[in-house]
Design a binder for these strands. Structure first.
Length: 569
RNA sequence: UGCCGAGUCGUCUAACGGCAGGACAGCGGCCUUUGAAGCCGUAUGUGGAGGUUCGAGUCCUCCCUCGGCAGCCA
């Protein structure tokens, strides 16, 4: 164990450190927070987690692990009108599935509602907050614009006692929704709009998924987040770039309240992927309008979707590491995600055979009722796993693509007169074929095999260029296989072409359901979630929701790279 | 037009004043019982103009480009 661990440590310490880890290194060196490193992942439970969140999860929990620190999972549930328990549950499941553990660090911003309320009274007492009665429309007008300063609210000069009284009555439900707010008293002339007396509490009668109807006032993000971090003793509060302008407010809250600790907010660039939409609002729309079959549709970039598609936590973690952490906004090529899953599955997934577009082949010189069992290597990358037996007989199915009546240049699969290897079985030479008179489709192919080439090598040293896969017709079973492709066919679905909207960029061929695929018998009894490579086709996974005993449904996770398709394009 | 932030191969990401490196993608080759994987090789990059310095991607000045911000959302 120690060898592997040491090697890993060496390679890790040699690896370049991202700017956040550099800041932490420096803070540790100067003992800014003593020897403590505490981070947190703070999702709002208003949707499912996606691959962009995975980057943040890997960053925050990764730092917790690397520095022998702690990482909390905290639900940022300060807006009950959008939040639901279903999302809380899915988020916990996804974080766990990704391989992370928050230990005792499970929190909700709503756990702190009482304390947050007390801090608000403290702010009032310090003369740093006031109750405002401007409507939202008026407040917008008073706020000024990006280039013009704002105007002070007429309620800004209220006395401390009046503010306290009004705020307490807001809490007890004396005033209607939206009629009053508690605002921080900062600076209406600030060039940073977040500092123009931001609202920190609003009146909203909405049922909260945890506190029920106990509250009719709820704190705003900037206020609640800073204090929640502080209450948990977070040392490094890592968030995305759009909160950069909020940092002065984050700091103002903690400085003004003179809190015992003051976490440092650090911003990094969120993950963007080409051909992918990451906005929770848009993902929600895809689900509710039925463009996909739920948040866990295998085409979705959600963790649940990727899991169902056949991605592994390991692949996602590796991906997150490769993507890096920086302040520069970027768009990652999905090819990198696909590389990460292929890399993992290539090493660990067993190989199996499926023919998804079957074409019958009759081996004319093979004995009528004979059957043999061929040795299939389970995974050439893991030879220690050995092999298993796969039945062979006179009639087999091959992939329609593996036969051409008139081969194009460079084609070395089956065509009249050509000899190929049937993987792990025999050499076979094409002697003819039959066509449907009406449609012109090839319906059957005839071959002669070389009995001396059993296992796939000829004793006379004869070479063949092509090796194709097959399944024995009488042993195969029919199954449904779903071929998934990217959900959007536009490189940046958020920026549709002139006159179109983002939904027009949906790829009409993102899902192809094939129902008469021929699978080798071994695959019949695999359980939901089983992952394997269908040789020469790609990586597939037995659907975790719709596979039933003896009747698996397979999802294509990702194709194999295909240089032939590329050169032949 | 106010404030904040960011510009390094096609896409990401390193460099902490001292040989611009890595990954993915691409291309070429080798190998191959998966046209896979693996191995080897290869092209392409510091937004621009000045300045400081023996030496600048890095420091300074000016410019250009891109992103974020005017919710009682997070």
């Amino acid at each position: 164990m120690s060898d592997e661990l040491e090697n890993k440590n060496i390679s890790e310490s040699a690896a370049p450190r991202d700017f956040i880890r550099q800041i932490i290194d420096e803070d540790l060196r100067t003992e800014k927070n003593g020897t403590k490193v505490v981070t947190r992942f703070p999702p709002e439970p208003n949707g499912y987690l996606h691959i962009g969140h995975a980057k943040s999860i890997c960053l925050n929990f990764g730092i917790g692990i690397e520095y022998a620190g702690k990482t909390n999972l905290r639900f940022d549930d300060t807006n009950p009108s959008k939040e639901e328990t279903e999302y809380v549950d899915s988020i916990m499941e996804d974080v766990r599935w990704l391989g992370f553990d928050w230990g005792t660090g499970l929190f909700y911003a709503s756990d702190y509602f009482d304390k947050l309320y007390e801090f608000a009274e403290a702010l009032i007492l310090k003369g740093k907050a006031f109750v405002c009665e401007l409507s939202s429309e008026e407040m917008r007008q008073y706020r000024g614009t990006l280039t013009e300063p704002g105007k002070e609210s007429p309620y800004r000069g209220r006395g401390i006692d009046e503010n306290l009284d009004l705020f307490r009555r807001m809490k007890t439900g004396e005033f209607p929704d939206g009629s009053k707010t508690l605002r921080a008293k900062i600076d209406m002339n600030s060039p940073n709009i977040n500092l123009r007396d931001p609202v920190i509490y609003r009146i909203m009668r909405a049922h909260h998924h945890r506190t029920g109807d106990n509250w009719c006032i709820y704190p705003m993000y900037d206020y609640a987040h800073a204090l929640s971090d502080m209450l948990e003793g977070i040392t490094h509060s890592i968030c995305t770039l759009e909160f950069e302008d909020h940092r002065p407010l984050y700091d103002w809250v903690l400085d003004t309240l003179e809190t015992p600790c003051h976490p440092q907010q650090i911003e990094f660039a969120r993950l963007n992927l080409n051909y992918t939409i990451m906005s929770k609002r848009k993902l929600n729309e895809l689900v509710t309008k039925g463009y996909v079959n739920g948040w866990d549709d295998p085409r979705m970039p959600t963790i649940a979707g990727l899991r169902r598609r056949g991605y592994t936590p390991e692949a996602i973690r590796n991906f997150a590491e490769r993507v890096g952490v920086a302040k520069r906004e970027s768009i990652i090529d999905v090819a990198l995600l696909e590389f990460s899953i292929r890399e993992d599955l290539n090493k660990h997934a067993e190989r199996a055979t499926a023919v998804i577009n079957p074409l019958k082949v009759v081996i004319t010189n093979y004995p009528e009722d004979q059957e043999e069992f061929m040795d299939f290597t389970i995974n050439p990358e893991e030879p220690e796993k050995g092999s298993r037996k796969v039945p062979f007989s006179k009639e087999i199915y091959i992939e329609r693509e593996d036969f051409m009546e008139e081969p194009v240049k460079g084609y070395f699969r089956l065509f009249p007169g050509n000899e190929v290897r049937l993987r792990w079985a025999y050499f076979a030479k094409c002697t003819g074929f039959k066509k449907d008179e009406v449609t012109g489709d090839v319906t059957e192919v005839y071959c002669e095999y070389d009995p001396a080439s059993k296992g796939g090598n000829s004793p006379d040293g004869r070479k063949v260029k092509g090796t194709i896969h097959w399944v024995s017709a009488k042993h195969a079973f029919d199954a449904e296989v779903r071929l998934y492709d990217r959900l959007f066919d536009h490189v940046d679905p958020n920026r549709p072409d002139e006159g179109k909207d983002w939904l027009d960029n949906l790829n009409p061929n993102s899902l192809t359901v094939l129902s008469n695929c021929k699978l080798e018998p071994y695959l019949k009894e695999v359980g939901p979630g089983f992952k394997c490579q269908f040789e020469r086709l790609g990586y597939f996974c037995a659907d975790i929701k719709e596979s039933t005993p003896g009747k698996p449904v397979f999802n294509r996770t990702v194709t194999l790279r295909d240089n032939w398709a590329k050169t032949n394009k």
